[in-house]
């Protein structure tokens, strides 16, 4: 029953988020601040993870191809497919659920504990629109982060491949261009938009409706990370089934 209640409350929160909009002059500042916190602030860690995991994907692929009949350019091909289809959109989103999700939950949760949300409500401000809507809009730039992750993942793979001596630069470049299907990029960005929505709303839900004190803020952040990850994985499965296996 609690799960059903929470699912209902989550959808009601989303509806409420779009009602009674905050003044644009104020909202604009909130959106810019959230772009800085959630998007720009995540670029460093995303770039670092993408580059090195791209390298690891390449090394693992190269080491598992032990048949001399398999061409070396398949290393580049496998790296590109892994990074574009799954690693960049899904794996990075799980990382973002930890980084951005816990930030959103703890910042909104702390506002709840210190009565700042009550202060907004008393003033007649739609606190959900004021707090969650700017995060939702800022995270619509999330595909930009994923594009960088894709680029750096493939670049990391190339560095590992060439400097590790697994194949030549030419082979790698042939591999990453081979049998390229543009729809795979579309598929990755559709997933990314869906994950961005989840990243903005589930952590906000857990922060906004939390009860208690500082300890509960920590617990809410953990719960938000778990549920954001679970929903991202399930949604990834459903979208892959719908978009690629049709």
């Amino acid at each position: 029953m609690t799960y059903l209640h929470n699912i209902g409350a989550y959808f009601l929160m989303i509806v409420e988020m779009f009602r009674k909009p905050t003044k644009w002059s104020v909202m604009k500042q909130l959106i810019l601040k959230d772009i800085d916190d959630l998007i720009i602030g995540s670029l460093g860690i995303v770039a670092f993870i993408a580059f090195f995991v791209g390298g690891v994907v390449t090394i693992q692929t190269a080491l598992n191809i032990d048949n001399p009949l398999i061409p070396k350019y398949l290393v580049g091909f496998a790296t590109r497919q892994s990074i574009i289809l799954e690693f960049a959109p899904t794996f990075i989103s799980i990382v973002m659920a930890g980084k951005v999700g816990s930030f959103i939950t703890s910042s909104i949760g702390t506002m709840r504990v210190t009565e700042q949300i009550d202060a907004l409500e008393v003033m007649g401000i739609n606190s959900l629109n004021y707090l969650v809507f700017p995060k939702f809009i800022s995270l619509m730039l999330y595909p930009f982060v994923i594009s960088i992750a894709m680029f750096l993942g493939i670049l990391g793979g190339m560095a590992a491949c060439v400097y590790g001596g697994f194949s030549s630069l030419d082979d790698y470049i042939v591999g990453i261009q081979m049998d390229f299907i543009p729809f795979h990029i579309t598929y990755a960005f559709i997933k990314t938009f869906a994950f961005a929505f989840i990243l903005a709303t589930i952590p906000s839900f857990h922060g906004y409706y939390m009860k208690g004190g500082a300890l509960e803020v920590g617990k809410a952040s953990t719960t938000a990370f778990v549920w954001t990850s679970v929903v991202i994985i399930l949604l990834n499965y459903l979208l892959t089934q719908m978009l690629l296996s049709a």
Partner: peptide
């Protein structure tokens, strides 16, 4: 309506 909360509730 103006409200003064117990913990002040200033936006930090």
């Amino acid at each position: 309506i103006g409200m003064v909360f117990q913990g002040s509730a200033l936006f930090d």
